[in-house]
Design a protein around this nucleic acid. Structure first.
Lengths: 328, 328
DNA sequence: CTGAAAGCGCTTACAG
DNA sequence: CTGAAAGCGCTTACAG
């Protein structure tokens, strides 16, 4: 039944001790070139790979990264997942995918991550309590917020520069001659939604312009219904700044349904620049989140913390750029 | 540093042996109610959870399911991922997410799965060699193909009934008066693409109709370019049967670009019924893959095989249904 | 039903 | 640089 090859088998074939086999595979230890070669040859012949569990039992560490996502309906997140999977694979790490159904990371999810002694945790579109943060800190498990941040920087987070992005979007729309605008937010308790409104609001105020805010939920259907509501209120704004692309698609479809022409009658700007934004049906003007860079920075910090835990907190913000298409 | 509570600590507090603690938590062993209560109370007090690695080292099993996906650009797969994550979470299993960049599962991916001694493996949009199949069989790791199947049934697979689906689609289009049709396939080596053509072809032949096949790649951009090519050839068919929804969107966008009206001039039928298919811009007639049922059947078989490995092979096919919308 | 003990396959001081 | 040995935290025959 237990037909696995273990370090002892390799040692016997190579004519060295089991410790030496371990040293060759664990790395960081000094082994003579001769021993290394013998071990590697024997391992190759037998098809040996170290048992991850025995290894983890000793080191109390795994080569698993916990990736927490709240949902994958917004295509932005599958794209993020893909990039993380690729980046960590190159580094020899695997992804434990944790889907949480609530806004806040649940106790059971945390227990899973803790049970598997993940090397680190990345949380994308969910929030977490102080207690949870403390749990990870206590276990010296690096924790990163991706595309979310918290005000008091006791966590490391990686976002695009949402404030600067929304300022530039506001300036862009003003320059296009828009005066009465609408901001459609995602869930109001998300840092992204808050910051995107903040920068937008700042610039409008400076230009003595006002705007109306409508709360939505970062989903297509949410954007669609919110836009319909606005249209039915009878007061079409000169531009919609929508907190993410997928909602912006909903807005465009609602406008289309009422034959309200874009960009002549009203304009629409999204956020994310997901793949679909460039599809001909939408061809949406939007803000590009530099996913690859964001992922790189996240991975870089993660590896450094795995190497030597510091718990250093910082809000990293990466510049994106406006992608101008046909909706403005 | 090692601040974890272990079974010994619990045993001491409960006043029993470490073996008894283990028996309470592992289950299946007979423990007196009195002992069980004492142990559970002590564990609760100390916040004990068994160390998964020590457990796995002994049992050679984990509570991890390997989920292999080739890409997540097609929204069908994130949806599948979500459903699997939820289903397995309820059963106390976690998901190791393996992204493979090639059509065929790579050696390194297999090694990862084997190294972590996953309890089972689900492969979605990738193929695998006979050698890999054998590797899993040798280790008695249940392996399931999801939305793919192989001809010689040495594997367990779960699909929708693609043959029946495409037959019904053909009949539906014939009934609508379509005569010269086009089938746009995904990658030609995928079972889904082959079977969807087969059923379609069968029914057309029976009705003495012919069709043209164009090979594409299951991507939006692939569908878009293929449709453009067809349009440029100057011979617009009366209907397009497109092997998945996301390609169908590309087809619709190309038709729109050339102002070819749907469904009056030509009709389009997709496959999958992903969320976006019901969006007003597309409102695509398509075949609904019963994801939930497919996931349920997969999970059911997986759990049975984890309980007691049989290696039983079967091609399970689940009936879907035609969703009629505005493109036909 | 319960406890003492062996053992899973590793890493890592400790001597040499 | 290398080997013998302890120990990580469990499960599981084995006795009682």
């Amino acid at each position: 039944m237990r037909n696995e090859i273990n370090a002892k088998d390799v040692a016997k074939l190579a004519g060295v001790s089991q410790s030496s086999v371990s040293r060759v595979f664990f790395g960081g230890a000094s082994v003579s070139e001769k021993t290394r070669k013998k071990v590697l040859a024997a391992a190759e012949e037998l098809g040996y790979t170290p048992n991850e569990f025995a290894r983890s039992l000793i080191t109390n560490k795994t080569r698993i990264i916990g990736l927490v996502m709240k949902g994958v309906k917004n295509p932005f997140y599958p794209q993020v997942l893909k990039e993380f999977a690729e980046a960590f694979k190159r580094l020899g790490y695997s992804i434990l995918f944790v889907q949480t159904n609530h806004d806040e990371l649940q106790k059971e999810d945390v227990e899973t991550l803790l049970n598997y002694h993940v090397a680190g945790v990345i949380i994308t579109n969910a929030t977490l309590s102080l207690k949870v943060t403390a749990d990870f800190k206590k276990n010296k498990i690096p924790l990163i917020l991706f595309n979310r941040k918290v005000e008091q920087p006791d966590l490391f987070s990686v976002c695009t520069n949402n404030l600067e992005a929304s300022r530039q979007i506001a300036e862009f729309l003003i320059q296009k001659g828009c005066k009465d605008m609408v901001y459609i937010s995602g869930q109001r308790n998300t840092s992204t939604s808050i910051e995107r409104e903040k920068g937008f609001s700042e610039v409008l105020k400076k230009n003595q312009l006002t705007y109306r805010r409508y709360d939505s939920d970062y989903s297509y259907i949410g954007g669609y219904h919110t836009a319909k509501q606005i249209i039915n209120e009878g007061c079409i704004p000169s531009a919609f700044f929508v907190a993410n692309d997928i909602m912006a698609f909903g807005v465009l479809d609602a406008l289309h349904e009422y034959s309200i022409e874009v960009p002549s009658v009203t304009k629409v700007v999204g956020f994310d620049n997901i793949d679909m934004a460039k599809w001909p049906v939408y061809h949406l003007t939007t803000w590009e989140q530099p996913i690859s860079e964001m992922v790189d920075r996240t991975v870089e910090y993660m590896m450094a913390e795995i190497e030597e835990y510091t718990g250093r907190a910082e809000n990293v913000e990466i510049e994106g750029k406006l992608i101008e298409r046909s909706t403005t």
